[in-house]
Amino acid sequence: MPSFPLYFRIPILIIGLLLLWQGIHLFLNIPPYLLPSPYSVFIAFKDNQVLLWNSALITFNETILGLISGCGLGILLALMMSLIPFVRQWLMPIILISQSIPTFALAPLLVLWFGFGISSKVVMAMIMIFFPVTSAFFDGLTRTPAGWIELGKTMNASPLRQLLYIRIPAALPSFASGLRIAAAIAPIGAVVGEWVGASSGLGFLMQNANNRFQTDLMFAALFLLSLMTICLWGAVTIATTKLIPWAEDTREF
């Protein structure tokens, strides 16, 4: 079977989906408030450009801040868990419990505590993001190939130096895969926060459009949201493969 490169498949997929969508719209005669045509979505996008881009920018800022703070928290927790057995024993259950609460249920509480502004959304995104980062990085830190650890020991490395120069670099490929997952889900956190209580952002825009049956505007916002997520994921993926080129080598072990 011939394999097509990604940059070839994506445009084909998009055009195909748009045609299918337009076809459904034409032949099934669905009212526009249920399913607007691609063309009317495009018009809605054009007419509300400023509003859409501004909203997207706000959501983007929340996402990035959430991603940074979530990664920071994730890295910190993973390091603490791998270094201190006591922390590992008591923190693991707490982290698991924190993930068992549906984020959507948590959102109203966060809005209550952190207000309608940006902080509740950042916290929301952070809560969603830290978990994949912590678990992947921690996993990487505990799976340092035994040979490297032994080599470090025979070189009389202190535990801290061993962590800095062997275990952390060896765990970076795992960290990167956690980060990629985090980048893909980060916008969800921000948008969920905006749905529940906000005065701006894509989530807020979508909720308003939904209430007013402006389905075309909603689709336009959704399109922007998914574009943002894909770009973020792509940027993180490219950055991690560039910065951690040894990910392939480490996998052999």
């Binding site: 040979g147 080599l151 470090g152 490395a157 202190s158 062997i166 080598d249």
Partner: peptide
């Protein structure tokens, strides 16, 4: 050891001098 145990993130010379780094 049987495996070379070279660190893939470090250049050859950095690998050679790894011990110094680990012992500060």
């Amino acid at each position: 050891a049987q495996q070379d145990l070279l660190m893939p993130w470090a250049t050859v010379i950095q690998n050679v001098m790894l011990g110094s780094k680990l012992r500060k």
